[in-house]
């Protein structure tokens, strides 16, 4: 039951992200849309890595004689990495948005279109 909720949330986040990416014209809003998309994918990965009644993959507390399921830690590691990468991406995109606004006085992609000058 709970897994279904996670997957539905993932699809919702992905859809919201893609729609916002397609229809928003403001550079800052595009960054937000990308963040929504990214968290959707993070959620999907974490949901994939979940195992029912499983243990953390730390060997010490595992009883020797029992058959237990352990969680593979790779998805969590990957998602931690991806969160950090998403943070770096967001920071860089916001930084260049600020510079774009400073140089062009607009954040609207329709007005930023094209490079006519050859400086």
């Amino acid at each position: 039951m709970s897994a279904i909720v996670l997957y539905v949330t993932f699809i919702l986040l992905l859809t919201i992200g893609i729609i916002a990416l397609l229809f928003k014209r403001n550079l800052i809003k595009i960054v937000l849309a990308f963040n929504i998309l990214d968290s959707g994918i993070n959620l999907f990965f974490i949901a994939l890595g979940y195992r029912e009644n499983a243990m953390a993959p730390i060997f010490t507390p595992a009883p020797l004689d029992s058959v237990i399921t352990m969680v593979l830690p790779t998805p969590q590691a990957l998602i931690l990495t991806n969160i950090v990468i998403g943070f770096a991406t967001t920071a860089l995109m916001l930084g260049v948005s600020v510079l774009t606004y400073r140089n062009n006085n607009t954040l609207d992609t329709r007005k930023l279109r094209g490079v006519e000058e050859y400086d």
């Binding site: 550079l27 595009i30 990308f34 991406t89 860089l92 995109m93 260049v96 948005s97 510079l99 774009t100 140089n103 062009n104 930023l112 490079v115 000058e117 400086d119």
Partner: peptide, 12 residues
């Protein structure tokens, strides 16, 4: 004027 926007586009 233009390089920050080009960088934004590439990063996006």
């Amino acid at each position: 004027k233009h390089p920050p926007y080009a960088g934004y586009k590439y990063m996006f």
